[in-house]
Amino acid sequence: MAEHNDKGNQAEMLAAQWLMEKGYELLTQNYRFKHAEIDLIMKYRGLLIFVEVKYRSGTGFGYAEEFVDATKKKLLVKAADAYIYEIDWHQDIRFDIVGVYKDRYGTINFRHFEDAFY
């Protein structure tokens, strides 16, 4: 597996753990529908939350939310629709982005963008 995939998977695990510490419940990870993948699907305060995790080793090239373009958003929404139908969900949903950043000292930091798009 490519190194960037390893870092992405590790970032997803770190983000899931960080969100669970904040009271989120992890329902599934890496949900696939056709050409789309949702990194994390979580529940929090009655909401079903679809989370896109982006890893960055610094912010020199921009922040996480800048790397979720219109095409990616469309794919995420299609996959979310499939999951909602699959589990017969009838309550509110939200799309979040969690940026996982590693600074030059190796410290991991998070930026959480709630209700990032839709």
Rank of each mutant, 00 (worst) to 15 (best):
R45M: 15
G106E: 05
D81P: 00
V98A: 07
H90R: 14
D6I: 12
A36C: 13
D92I: 06
Y101W: 12
N9D: 09
W18N: 01
R104L: 08
A15G: 02
F117P: 02
G60D: 07
Y101I: 14
E12Q: 08
E25K: 10
A16H: 04
A36P: 01
T71R: 12
N9I: 00
A2W: 05
K72V: 10
N109T: 11
V77K: 08
Q29L: 12
Y85V: 11
I49E: 03
K74L: 10
R32P: 01
G8E: 01
D92S: 15
F117D: 04
A15M: 00
M42R: 03
A16Y: 00
I108V: 14
T107F: 08
V68C: 09
H112E: 10
G60E: 08
G23D: 10
A16T: 03
F117H: 04
L48V: 06
F95A: 01
T71K: 14
Y105R: 13
D103M: 10
V51G: 02
Y44R: 10
Q91M: 15
E25P: 00
F67I: 07
V53K: 01
N5Q: 12
F33Q: 04
F95H: 02
H90C: 13
K102L: 14
Q17C: 07
E25W: 01
M20E: 08
F110G: 03
M42A: 05
D88I: 10
A15N: 02
D69C: 13
L76A: 04
I97H: 02
K22S: 11
L27I: 12
S57E: 12
T71V: 12
I84W: 04
F117S: 04
H90Q: 12
I84E: 04
G60T: 03
G106Y: 03
A16E: 05
R94G: 09
E52N: 15
L47A: 07
I41M: 06
I38N: 03
K54S: 04
Y55H: 11
I49M: 05
A15W: 02
L14Q: 10
V100P: 02
Y85G: 12
K54C: 05
G62F: 09
K43P: 00
I41K: 01
D6W: 15
I38G: 00
A16D: 02
K102S: 13
F113W: 08
Y24V: 03
F67Q: 07
E86A: 14
A116P: 03
M13R: 06
T107S: 13
G46Y: 06
V77H: 05
F117I: 02
H4C: 15
A82H: 09
D88V: 12
Y63P: 03
N5V: 09
A11D: 02
L40K: 01
